[in-house]
Design a protein around this nucleic acid. Structure first.
Length: 1018
RNA sequence: GCUGAAGUGGUGGAAUUGGUAGACACGUUGGACUUAAAAUCCAAUGAACAUUGCGUUCGUGCGGGUUCAAGUCCCGCCUUCAGUACCA
């Protein structure tokens, strides 16, 4: 009987689905007193966004690893929760809708079907009965519900947790806000209880918004005109949008925000309590960006004595010890005080500068950090201690978004201040003892001794910081302060395909729709574009389905609503739905609660979370924030949602490139067959593609290009400057252009006929001339055309994706699973190379042959040999250790060794071959199930107990000692393990080869580590 | 620039507390089987020298150091990748 993997895999996938083999036991319904008797274990993957391109072989890597772990835990007797779902709101489906008019829900549904089919055929042990989709109203009902809870909460810095807004209101009613220590807007004004009680309802609501954990405020946002929406900081990469690479500009808009900054310190501290990869924690630490220092107030010297208005400039500094080194101040050009303090003489210059900086895009500013620019406002501030006047400048090296948007400039201690001072000829006073600052600033805190600084003289950094803050507090002009880089997260998107807000407006103030009306479902719209009046796409909606008779406030027509009580027209961002899904899986069908307390108290938190590190500052940070909030509400037992996290590395594609002699009416992927190449050696009609061998023969190539130089005017610049150095040519010749990897074999040879007949791009190549290594035109069947190969990220646009469907049909899911693990350590980036899969595939065939040969099933009841027991038990030990350490690649090697050994031993004993299947089952579950059933089992292998390791089978009586001379191993010697040191020495010294090595010399020293090594020093 | 991770054969990668470097595969070469191919099996495969065999020397990015012994520990560099960037 042969190993027919396709049939076997289909059979067992159907069996698992029919029998719901991997359904997690429900703690509420099973066992005694509402609990499963098994210990729980929760293994989670980051759920996918179902894109139209489907899966490539890089996507399942993490899923395979987590699946192996989940299956292993089932063998170990755990009640395993291993769910899967879809993060199904998002931009691509919406962009597609804009282009084609197809409803994103339909696109999403189709994509999910593809994903599900692809996932199913890999044989994952997901509990699909718990599937969630973020775009499903029964799911996003709870996303909206969390939003309402956030709106109804404020952050109490004294109790250090979120509390219901009603507690804040009662404080306001009794004492006003003067003694409130809360996370709030920087611009909150102080008021008394009396004032509060006299405020209008709108005024009160406005003030409360400055405290709520989600709030509506005019903020400077990242606006992406091409996408027509705002973006969060983590959605911008290198100054352009992460999706699509469109430019982003700063813009003031009224937006929903999340007061994540309230949790900055807890998000930072929490990192110490979780087992997450250190690099990822570091990214989060940097993003939170804690810096300890002081806030200092500088009084602006009034322009004229009669000037009644007095201004203060607050700055944040990490170096209050250098306060006597301040020789100027710098404000961000956008700073609100700039217009107020600028003198008439400087007005023109300052305004010109502001205009110039406003014009520069974020990207320009980032690209050009070297150029020093700024303008003097004409105003001066007073030094808090020396009382000397300090000129106030503006400069774009000071960012409006960080700290207070103003700095006290200490040129002797900060290189940027130093450069600015040099550039504008501002004095650079030295306040450091014994330090030369004629060339650059001195920023070494650890070796600082302060001088020329009055009461700070002679102090070191730490002492001076403390003293300076003390003196500032005495003056009432400063205090110690901790600043965080973490900004509140903008939470609205001007898009259609996202969660609607449960919000309507009364007199411009946002109101929550009562939770009993949730979900507020996404209304149908005619167009997915902004309305003519510039409102988000939801402004096109005419009917909202959520309205009920019980809520008389809002009627069922949005048109009507707009005149009476307008609805929120923005939708939530992509990360809204992914910030609570891990908890929802615990009780996904609960219609009354986000999850029951029974469920959360049983499942607790995610034990193992696997996903990519690219979510460090997005999903993973926001989820931690929401979890802490849920913890404050008393809804979850842990304030971290995932105990352990592993980042799987990316699987890279091996792209293929052909060198193209470029520039002939080439546009939009279509090659014109022009008349430019009527002359020359080949009577060339169109583009030339050059094989790798020729591309490296640069002199020949040059000659060839000159001979074929077109004589028409359309000849290309690069042809006029032909050199023998290929690097001088356009990218398309130097690096080549991508071709589909499926037309390139393992020897880097291109299948030209396949390429020309490709459905998508074949027509582009029909008229191309392919030149071989010696400049010959490639046409014959035996001709070889080589391409350049390079490792890159796997992506559709790079034409280097490998589809798991093809792998599964050619080699089977078990081969795919084993091979993905075999490639290398889970966390590591590694290139995919389909050719290597034959190794694991033939391993599976060898495994099969241990059970079946031409005469049929050959497993016997015979007692196993000693060697076979040894093989089995060392395999048990190693595999168990490997899985516990997430070292899946090495356990695949271990299986190979075991099967090779057992084959050599001609082992047929059931006592060996039965437990072996359980070891392999997490990795290659289909073949394991099939052979398991042939062993006579009626039940699935999935919960068979993991074999117990028995040390006694590994006990050896002898050791093959490596004998080293001066640390270099020369030969080995088989010796009994119970030999004493002296006996070992005697035996080794008596050996013929030892004498040969020593050549008569006396050894100086003999090191013997029993059971390990012998080293003779001569 | 700063922060983090990593550099081992032709390739992917192994190597407990320092203790036989290159496991396991891919690829390559030779052989068996076959009319042939595929599949399968066997052998060799770090480099150089030697080759009649025993072998010998060098080898884990580079330069030092600790040690009987270093891929592993310490110091100083180099390179690559990733994150981040005027953060006061």
């Amino acid at each position: 009987m042969k190993y027919h993997f396709n049939e076997i895999e289909a059979k067992w996938q159907k069996y698992w689905a029919d029998n719901q083999t991997f359904k997690a036991e429900n703690p509420v319904l099973s066992g005694v007193e509402g609990k499963s008797e098994k210990p729980k274990y929760y293994v989670l993957d980051m759920f996918p966004y179902p894109s139209g391109a489907g899966l490539h072989v890089g996507h399942p890597l993490g899923y395979i690893a987590s699946d192996i772990y989940a299956r292993y835990k089932r063998h170990k007797g755990f009640n395993v929760l291993h769910p899967q779902g879809y993060d199904s709101f998002g931009l691509p489906a919406e962009q597609y809708a804009i282009q084609t008019g197809q409803h994103p829900a339909i696109t999403t549904e189709e994509n999910i079907k593809t994903y599900r089919r692809q996932l199913d055929q890999i044989g994952f042990s997901f509990d699909w009965s718990r599937e969630v989709r973020t775009s499903d109203p029964s799911y996003y009902k709870w996303t909206q519900w969390v939003f309402i809870q956030l709106f109804n909460s404020w952050y109490n810095n004294d109790s250090d947790k979120a509390e219901n807004i009603s507690t804040l209101i009662s404080v306001f009613e009794k004492d006003g806000n003067t003694n409130v220590n809360a996370a709030c807007d920087d611009n909150v004004k102080l008021f008394s209880a009396e004032a509060w009680n006299n405020f209008s309802s709108e005024q009160q609501q406005d003030i409360l918004l400055q405290y709520r954990l989600t709030y509506l405020a005019e903020t400077e946002v990242n606006w992406c005109p091409a996408l027509g929406t705002v973006l969060a900081n983590d959605e911008i990469v290198n100054g352009v949008s992460e999706r699509g690479g469109h430019p982003v500009v700063r813009k003031k808009m009224t937006q929903w925000s999340m007061r994540i900054s309230a949790y900055a310190e807890r998000l930072l501290q929490g990192l110490e309590t979780i087992d997450w990869p250190e690099p990822l924690k570091e990214i989060q630490r940097n993003w939170i960006g804690k810096s300890v220092g002081a806030q200092v107030e500088f009084n602006v010297i009034p322009k004229e004595q009669s000037d009644e208005e007095s201004h203060k400039i607050s700055v944040f500094t990490t170096r209050p010890d250098t306060i006597f080194g301040v020789s100027f101040m710098t404000l961000a050009p956008e700073h609100e005080l700039v217009s107020k303090i600028t003198t008439p003489e400087q007005k023109a210059e300052v305004e010109a500068y502001i205009e110039a900086t406003a014009k520069r895009s974020e990207r320009d500013r980032m690209a050009d950090v070297k150029t020093i620019s700024g303008a003097f406002t004409g105003a001066y501030a007073e030094h808090p201690f020396s009382k000397q006047p300090i000129p106030i400048w503006i400069g774009d090296y000071v960012l409006a978004g960080y700290g207070t948007g103003a700095v006290m400039s200490v040129p002797c201690g900060d290189q940027r201040d130093y450069d600015f001072a040099k550039h504008f000829n501002i004095p650079i006073p030295n306040i450091f003892e014994g330090v030369d600052i004629s060339e650059e600033a001195f920023a070494d805190k650890d070796n600082t001794i302060i001088a020329n600084s009055g009461f700070l003289d002679g102090l070191n950094y730490k002492q001076a910081v403390k003293q300076a803050i003390y003196e500032l507090e005495k003056l009432g002009q400063g205090k110690g302060k901790i600043n965080y880089r973490l900004r509140d997260a903008v939470f609205s998107r001007q898009r259609y395909w996202g969660e609607p807000f449960p919000v309507y407006y009364v007199n411009g103030m946002p109101q929550m729709i009562d939770a009993k009306h949730l979900p507020i479902t996404l209304p149908e719209v005619e167009k997915y574009l902004p309305t003519e009046t510039g409102e988000p796409p939801l402004g096109n909606a005419t009917h909202w389905a959520w309205c009920t008779k019980t809520n008389s406030v809002v009627s069922s027509s949005a048109v009507e609503n707009k005149t009476v009580f307008p609805l929120e027209l923005n939708t939530m961002p992509g990360w809204a739905g992914s910030s609570q899904y891990f908890n929802r899986y615990m009780d996904p069908h609960n219609e009354d609660e986000i999850f029951s307390q029974e469920a959360i108290n049983y499942w607790q938190q995610v034990d193992l979370y696997i996903g990519g590190s690219e979510h460090a500052t997005g999903h993973l940070l926001y989820s931690r924030f929401w979890q802490k909030f849920m913890y404050d509400l008393g809804l979850v037992p842990h304030d971290e949602f995932a105990k352990k996290l592993i980042n799987q590395g990316m699987i890279l594609g091996t792209s293929a490139f052909v060198r193209r002699v470029d520039g002939f009416n080439y546009e939009k992927g279509k090659y014109n067959s022009g008349e430019h190449f009527n002359k020359g050696a080949y009577n060339v009609k169109t583009n030339i593609l050059i094989s790798e061998g020729l591309a490296s023969n640069q002199d020949y190539l040059k000659k060839l290009l000159i001979e074929n130089k077109p004589d028409t005017e359309s000849s290309i610049k690069s042809y006029d400057t032909i050199t023998s150095n290929i690097d001088d040519y356009k990218i398309s010749l130097r690096d080549g252009v991508h071709v589909k990897v499926k037309y390139v074999n393992a020897s880097d040879e291109l299948d030209i006929n396949g390429l020309k007949n490709d459905e998508e791009y074949g027509k582009d190549y029909i008229d191309c001339i392919f030149l071989g290594e010696n400049g010959e035109i490639i046409g014959g069947n035996n001709d070889v055309f080589k391409v350049r190969r390079d490792v890159e990220k796997m992506s559709k646009s790079k034409l280097n994706v490998v589809n798991p469907d093809d792998i599964v049909s050619d080699y089977g899911a078990d081969s795919l699973r084993l091979y993905e693990m075999f490639l290398g350590p889970l966390e590591q980036y590694k290139p995919w190379n389909t050719a290597g899969i034959t190794g694991v595939h033939s391993f599976l065939k060898k495994l099969w042959k241990l059970y079946f040969d031409d005469n049929g099933f050959k497993v016997t009841e015979d007692e196993p040999s000693k060697e076979a027991l040894k093989t089995l038990h060392k395999t048990i030990k190693k595999v168990e250790e490997d899985i516990e350490n997430f070292s899946f690649n090495t356990s695949v090697s271990t299986f190979m060794i075991a099967v090779n050994e057992l084959t050599a031993q001609k082992c047929t004993s059931k006592k060996i071959l039965e437990p072996l299947l359980i070891l392999i089952s997490p990795y290659a579950p289909h073949i394991a199930e099939e052979l398991w059933s042939h062993l006579g089992h009626k039940e699935s292998i999935s919960t068979a107990p993991f074999p117990k390791f028995d040390e006694s089978h590994l006990v050896e009586s002898t050791k093959n000692y490596p004998i080293s001379f001066n640390g270099k191993m020369r030969f080995t010697m088989e010796l009994p393990l119970d030999l004493s040191k002296d006996d070992i020495e005697t035996a080794v010294m008596a050996h013929e080869k030892t004498k040969e090595q020593l050549q008569g010399r006396e050894p100086k020293k003999v090191i013997i580590v029993p059971g390990k090594i012998v080293n003779i020093v001569g």
